[in-house]
Design a protein around this nucleic acid. Sequence first.
DNA 1: TCTTGTCTACTTGTATACAAGTGTATCTGA
DNA 2: TCAGATACACTTGTATACAAGTAGACAAGA
Lengths: 224, 224
Amino acid sequence: MFVPDRQPKESARDFAFRTLKDNIVSLDLKPGTQISENEIAQVLGLSRTPVREAIIDLSKASIIETVPQKGSYVSLIDQKMVDEARFVRDVLDKAVIRLACRVADTESLDAMEENLHLQQFYLEKGDPKRLFTLDNEFHRLIYVAADKETTFEMRSSMLLHFDRVRRLSLSTVKDLKIVTDHQEMLSAIKSGDEEAAEALVDKHLKRYKLDEPWMREEHPEFFK
Amino acid sequence: MFVPDRQPKESARDFAFRTLKDNIVSLDLKPGTQISENEIAQVLGLSRTPVREAIIDLSKASIIETVPQKGSYVSLIDQKMVDEARFVRDVLDKAVIRLACRVADTESLDAMEENLHLQQFYLEKGDPKRLFTLDNEFHRLIYVAADKETTFEMRSSMLLHFDRVRRLSLSTVKDLKIVTDHQEMLSAIKSGDEEAAEALVDKHLKRYKLDEPWMREEHPEFFK
DNA sequence: TCTTGTCTACTTGTATACAAGTGTATCTGA
DNA sequence: TCAGATACACTTGTATACAAGTAGACAAGA
């Protein structure tokens, strides 16, 4: 497990939550792995209480499963859950980008523009990790532009399942294409072209063709 | 605060969670009220730990807000949050009912049919509380029919904000109309008429006209 | 060999003790 | 009378102790 630095003023619980979530999504903590509250507490230099609270939080998103008096486990990859996460993303993203086309103000557009410049920068520089963060942030900015930030938070918790499988998948989407998609989205929002914007979201999401049979064959122990 | 009976085998945390949630949505715990972990623990006959964990869960849905070293409070009604909950319900319900039109099997349809009979029964009997439960369950069954049950859970957590304002609103939707809406929805799903089904969801949701100015005037202390 | 009971080492669930910060009431001093 | 210091009662955050249940190792006995 990878243990990041604890941010100043970050509570023990938030620190434990962040660490566990990142390790699960990055597959450093593999699906099916048993998690011991005590062990995690020791590794992170905390007591059981904040670790336990973080685990409960993650259980709510079904990314950890706890069996009383037995143990907590990183959830196996559940194809149905992955599909459902993708469905939610598809439905919400489309509705929200349409809304953004109608109500986005210049401030939001500027923020997206700035983000895109950074995407371009790190694309050329070749920093996929930083690009991943900017990608996520760009989509958040669309929600912000539509004044639906809380909805984005909800979307995020469910999307953990999807993100984790993306890591596992062979098909790496070319970063170049992603950035181009984003640029086109911003153009559509600027011109208020809802139809185009929705179509772009559709195209964007379809780039992630998750080759389930291959993944199942490669890592059968990860699947439910 | 109303304290229900603890179900057999219900964990202390689940019991605390259920009790707090119901009291908040029913407005027995009024918006802005300070909640003391110790006090709740005493009232429920539990220790602080499970109560605290329940409060953390509810904080995740932004229905409780905690200020470190100061206190936890039932969130004030935030119009933006209510609108957003309504938005999510609108978008997801429409997408899901369209899906249900395509994929619902007879088992799901039967379950909905049975539910509707009960709705009819309690409508004639005049039991609005039971009817409320059946209403919620009916909408869950639509999600089940579309094989999107996890999405429903997510929707529920956000809908707390909406439900709580519904309680406060003057405009009581006639139960008769609700049941009729449901019957029409089931018909549309059975015949696979996506357009009609979506239109019904729209009509259904529009029945809840929440008179915000009136509520604000009547209970200014409840609002943000 | 197989069954069965027991012991042990683990797990999570809950209760309690302590740490640290906030706000208020009160007392002190001018 | 008023300003400011201070003690106190409260809060949540974290650590620790104990309760209760699970599973596996292992030995005793048929």
